[in-house]
């Protein structure tokens, strides 16, 4: 046997020091008050008006972005599936390339386009149209999320639809099913694993982001990620920050469980 249990020792140390203890410390701080006693106050703080508003807005914007990504990605994945081998490689290359650019720079690009003195407004003015206030709106944040996360939706969906056997689709036509029927009864059910991994890969980062809302919301629109980030970096209230993170993690875990239910490949779609 090449395999020896002791080879996994550094890995287990890393899991304990890098994952188990750090996550346990969020739980510890989340249930501890500033004076050191046990409390639920950091958890129930989520029900405060500001926090509820931020959580609600995060869920809403993350949901909208995820739906837009899904609607944009599915036809793209189908086009990819239908194209010839060489062209397919080129298209995948073109979709992956922006992912290699730092996502802060990609988000900044939208700031440059949308700003009051930005590119789109100067084009509008040159055409004799009035300036638009596009920055610091929820719409700008959604746009940023869709732009940053779209490839994460396209690739997993493409991975599953490309494996759908053409014979199944032909059989469906031969048996008299219409295009729509074939899509809803054959293609769509077979692409569920890809859709689910795409949805989690877009929904979780969109729900928890503080960068996109900070850059395109101008610090005026608070998402739950912004609230948590500020508790840690500005207010140094780790107790409250941890408590709110624990509540946020409920949503993350729910999406993970959903992923596990549908995706039996053990996370291979995620790479």
């Amino acid at each position: 046997m090449i395999a020896k249990k002791r080879f996994a020792v550094p890995f287990i140390i890393w899991i304990i020091a890098g994952t188990v203890i750090p996550l346990a410390s969020i739980a510890y701080y989340g249930f501890t008050s500033r004076s050191g006693g046990f409390t639920f106050a950091n958890i129930t703080a989520m029900f405060q008006h500001d926090h509820m508003q931020a959580l609600g807005l995060s869920l809403l914007l993350a949901l909208i972005s995820t739906v837009i990504c899904l609607v944009l990605a599915f036809p793209m994945a189908m086009v990819l599936r239908g194209s010839k081998y060489g062209k397919q490689g080129f298209l995948i290359f073109v979709i992956i390339l922006p992912m290699w650019m730092n996502f802060l720079l990609r988000t900044m690009a939208w700031q440059v386009l949308l700003e009051r003195q930005g590119v789109i407004n100067s084009i509008l003015v040159a055409m004799g149209l009035p300036r638009q206030e596009m920055m610091n709106t929820p719409g700008a944040i959604v746009l940023g999320m869709v732009y940053d996360f779209l490839p994460f939706m396209i690739l997993p969906i493409y991975n599953t639809v490309s494996k759908i056997d053409n014979h199944l689709i032909e059989a469906s036509y031969d048996l008299g099913a219409s295009r729509v029927k074939t899509f809803t009864s054959v293609v769509l059910p077979l692409s569920v694993p890809g859709i689910v991994s795409g949805v989690t890969m877009v929904f979780i980062p969109a729900l928890t982001t503080f960068v996109i809302s900070n850059m395109l919301g101008g610090g005026k629109i608070n998402l739950i990620g912004n609230i948590i980030e500020q508790e840690f970096t500005v207010n140094s209230n780790w107790y409250l920050g941890s408590g709110l993170s624990l509540v946020m993690m409920v949503f993350i875990i729910a999406s993970m469980l959903l992923l596990q239910k549908f995706d039996k490949t053990g996370g291979e779609n995620l790479i």
Partner: peptide, 27 residues
């Protein structure tokens, strides 16, 4: 079980991994 733990940092939101490690270093 170990593979389950292995997948946590990959599936978890980066902000949670980040603050978890930050608290670990502070503690």
């Amino acid at each position: 079980v170990l593979m389950g733990f292995n997948n946590i940092p990959m599936l978890n939101a980066d902000i949670v991994t980040g603050i978890a490690l930050m608290l670990f270093f502070l503690m």
